[in-house]
Design a protein around this nucleic acid. Structure first.
Lengths: 168, 168
DNA sequence: AATATTTTTCAATAAATTTTGAAAGTATAA
DNA sequence: TTATACTTTCAAAATTTATTGAAAAATATT
């Protein structure tokens, strides 16, 4: 397989994967492209390689920067901006977990807490049918959440140490 | 807060959460509704409570059954089918992980393996820029994958034992 | 075997999301 | 200051995804 073909396949796969998990396909494709590019790319480079418009590149690159996955790179003597992706995959992984936790998990916790304030007779089957599963979700979710938090604060070494410890 | 209000809020929140993670909003809402209902519901019940069409109910309930999150319940003397959600949240969690692993992670592994067969000079910076991050992704993803696999095979007790072991 | 009830399918439609591209904005250089 | 190079914005268009609803299929009842 040619390098270019392999790149294209990877970018395509990453895009599909991202969109299955609720992330804009183009955003993940740009991320994939930058990730496997040896040098930083300009907006025009990205437009050309992915065959997308300038506005699209601009929006999605900005989102990637907000996510902390892509950096602006200024080349001396160049007026244009260039972009480069974070190459440390462990850092990327941690960053994504951190962001989604903040953006999507935290609001859910708030709502679980809120709806559990519901009034009712603990003997009422309707009441129990609501409160019990919601409490269970809260319990398991906050466990998972603190695991994720620990994960985002840990370094790679810690993570693998943990895995070894777990599965020995 | 009234029970009905709390239910509605929960269903709404669950729907939003699901769609952020690439799962059809209606599917997660039906799941939430069944999860907090004391008794199994018929298609008509679901249509009425969520104000959606029969076809929509039918499709999404079928998907939920495919995911192993909802069961058909046959009531003696009743011709209609009723539906009930798996109430064991730990089981739900495991089931979702298991399914998404199979449906979405496995194909990605296949592609990573394939594109890593790419020909090239290991000294070439372009080649390295491609192969290195992709290898890293493969490494971290297969670690994460085996953790998830273990998770789906484990029981709840094992999970919490592990957490305690980890964070003590 | 004819009728009644319920479920399933799927083409058409609606809704949500993404993308475009041209105009406005900004910064640098002549 | 004016021109030039580049970036950002955002309403309109295109695309993708979800939903409807009526007809067909399946299943049960008389």
């Amino acid at each position: 397989m040619e390098l270019q073909e392999a790149k294209d396949k990877f970018i395509q796969a990453w895009g599909t994967f991202g969109s299955q998990w609720g992330i804009n396909r183009t955003m993940t494709q740009i991320h994939a492209l930058l990730l496997v590019s040896a040098a930083p790319l300009s907006a025009d480079d990205i437009m050309e390689q992915l065959q997308i418009s300038r506005g699209n590149v601009n929006m999605n690159v900005r989102d990637l920067i907000d996510w902390g996955l892509v950096y602006k790179v200024l080349k001396p003597g160049e007026r244009r901006e260039f972009f480069s992706a974070e190459k440390d995959i462990w850092k990327v992984f941690r960053q994504v977990v951190k962001q989604r936790r903040k953006r999507e998990l935290e609001p859910v916790f708030g709502i679980l807490e809120e709806v559990l304030k519901v009034q009712g007779d603990p003997k009422d089957p309707e009441y129990k049918a609501f409160v019990e599963p919601v409490r269970d979700i809260q319990k398991i979710a906050s466990r998972a959440d603190s695991t994720l938090e620990t994960l985002t604060k840990a370094d790679e070494n810690w993570f693998f140490t943990m895995l070894v410890k777990l599965f020995k």
